[in-house]
Design a protein around this nucleic acid. Structure first.
Lengths: 330, 330
DNA sequence: AAATTTTGCAAAACCGGTTTTGCAATTGAA
DNA sequence: TTCAATTGCAAAACCGGTTTTGCAAAATTT
């Protein structure tokens, strides 16, 4: 059932129907009686306008694109929910997609969203998205980068202070008597990861000890992971603490330690909290990003750009909290 | 830049441009030379067609709606990722939304998706969606219900065998010497929850012991939760095991037990696995749904309906696995 | 050389809406 | 009573595409 069908059935013009349906009867000088007749019929047949046609005509899709690395993970999943809820309050819906860190995926997704005429984009960029992002900026399409920046791009950004949080976390280990701290991270040049790495390196160097770093491929198999961890233990037998650049690396490592029945105890800190950390024995100290606040700022930024895009760039750095648990008590 | 602009600039008609862009130059009998000229220009200016207009004209949005309860949770999140990945292989994108179990939300979301002309819907229904779902079926829009059924509705369905899995889980507790088993669930008449409940009740009654059930509101505060749990312990002091209808209830309960410093040990089984369960002390036995397979079946069902919707109804019941861990060893 | 086919493209109709414009009929003012 | 203003709606133009149809001009056939 289209607006044409309604018009034909009621023997009026479709412009009249459109005006009435959109509450512009007054403005279109449609008589109350005709308006009622139309509304009644619309109600009767349960007519719902075709949103594609509507968007095409009005230029408004009421949709925001959300591009994350992995909707299934314990950081992006909850964030996505918050973002969805908050955007709903403003009448916007979410079109999401996961890049899995893959640049080709990411660019394809971005294009798709632009073609679908999203009105704004919340993006956790992968590497190599500089030029696509610049295109978006040129179009003055509302954009906010999320969780990670892109080097050399001036865009709105929401994230935590990875460097400072990382420094605090590692210093906390030193303060509690750990000194041979291994850093487990992924092979990634993503800025937030580099910041966390730099935080580690700086503190380690401030404390004049050697840095111990292992980098794992983005999606390494459990076997590969296990081998790397084991060789790390062998190479640095007096290592007394582990610092993880992100929570799932810690979870994976714990599983491995359990599998290989490794009994040495380490001080431990992970970046990003996880259900597990509050309940594991020992409970695990972590850097906790305020997920809801991050989501809120991202949405606010999009909404304000939607109202008026001055092109002015704002950065929201939301401090993380170090949640101190048993894993850093000697 | 629209197709009209291209046509004007090249002084050709937009139909010609459209045919060429869509690889139908042959069929439209456009000369190779003109086709090349058009393609070159399209390339040069980086033209991307407006997907809304395209969808409106072709009737194809290449989008599937995915409606889950909560994209942020450890069941739906990973499933959503699988679904997205698999649909991508078929050239479909995902429009998702979370209902949070709220019926009004759910129906609004459903309408929005219909208006946006998704070509199919993967739906974890809330209660009271019978009639909206029937509307979808009448339209012959590809649909697959996911994780939970709707009473009295004959629709494609993908889910696990909640009743059988639940029975096995509870029986496993009895087999291992537990006999006073409390069941912790949410106040919900969702079919999958009722099946899990029935599984519990039947096994408890088979073993001629009293059933102990507490039902919590869908999103209960931690305080409310704590009170209910404590009163359960008081009322049933000789309770020796807990069975949870879903994983986050178990996680929450563990946190509470830790908070209130409760030292009694229980046998434990949860429905749905969780990272925590493999690493908690003791490791926790659970019913594990094969997430990837569930996602795969749902996608396959949609794809096959997309090819040809015979209206034939299929149900895919994917068996769950009981993963036995330490929490059920006495 | 005339008739027929084929080629190459433009024009038009359509998808389902919104919004501006235009015009007859009614009402109000002079 | 005549002219102007207002009312009430239809018609048309537009959003940006796709697809069918139509029609010269060129190429073949007869």
């Amino acid at each position: 059932m289209s607006i044409n069908d309604i018009a034909k059935h009621l023997k009026v013009s479709k412009s009249t129907v459109s005006l009435v349906i959109n509450g512009k009867a007054e403005q279109g000088r449609i008589s109350q009686s005709l308006a009622k007749r139309i509304l009644d019929y619309v109600e009767e047949i349960g007519y719902k306008p075709n949103a594609l046609a509507k968007s095409l005509a009005t230029g408004k899709s009421h949709t925001i694109g959300l591009i994350v690395e992995n909707i299934g993970d314990s950081f992006f999943g909850p964030i996505a929910l918050y973002i969805e809820e908050k955007l709903r309050q403003y009448g916007y819906h979410v079109f999401y997609s996961s890049t899995l860190g893959n640049q080709d995926n990411a660019n394809e997704i971005l294009n798709m969203m632009l073609e679908k005429k999203v009105e704004g984009i919340i993006l956790s960029p992968t590497l190599g998205q500089k030029s696509p992002i610049e295109k978006i900026l040129k179009k003055k399409l509302p954009l906010v980068l999320f969780d990670r920046r892109v080097e050399g791009v001036e865009a709105n950004y929401v994230g935590t202070d990875n460097y400072v949080a990382s420094k605090n976390a590692v210093q906390h280990l030193f303060d509690n008597g750990f000194s041979r701290i291994g850093f487990i991270t992924i092979e990634s040049s993503q800025p937030q990861m580099l910041d966390r790495l730099k935080g580690y390196e700086d503190v380690v160097s401030d404390n004049s000890v050697e840095s111990i770093i292992i980098k794992l491929p983005y999606q390494s198999s459990i076997d590969e992971f296990t081998l790397k961890i084991q060789s790390m233990f062998k190479t640095y037998p007096n290592m007394d603490a582990l610092y993880f650049s992100t929570n799932y690396l810690c979870v994976k490592t714990l599983k491995i330690l359990q599998n290989i029945n490794y009994t040495n105890k380490f001080g431990m800190v992970a970046f990003d909290d996880h259900d597990l950390f509050e309940l594991y024995t020992p409970t695990i100290t972590c850097v906790s990003q305020p997920l809801e606040e991050l989501a809120l700022k991202a949405v606010n930024s999009i909404i304000s750009q939607l109202k008026e895009n001055t092109g002015e760039v704002e950065e929201f750095i939301i401090p993380s909290k170090l949640i101190i648990r048993d894993s850093t008590k000697k």
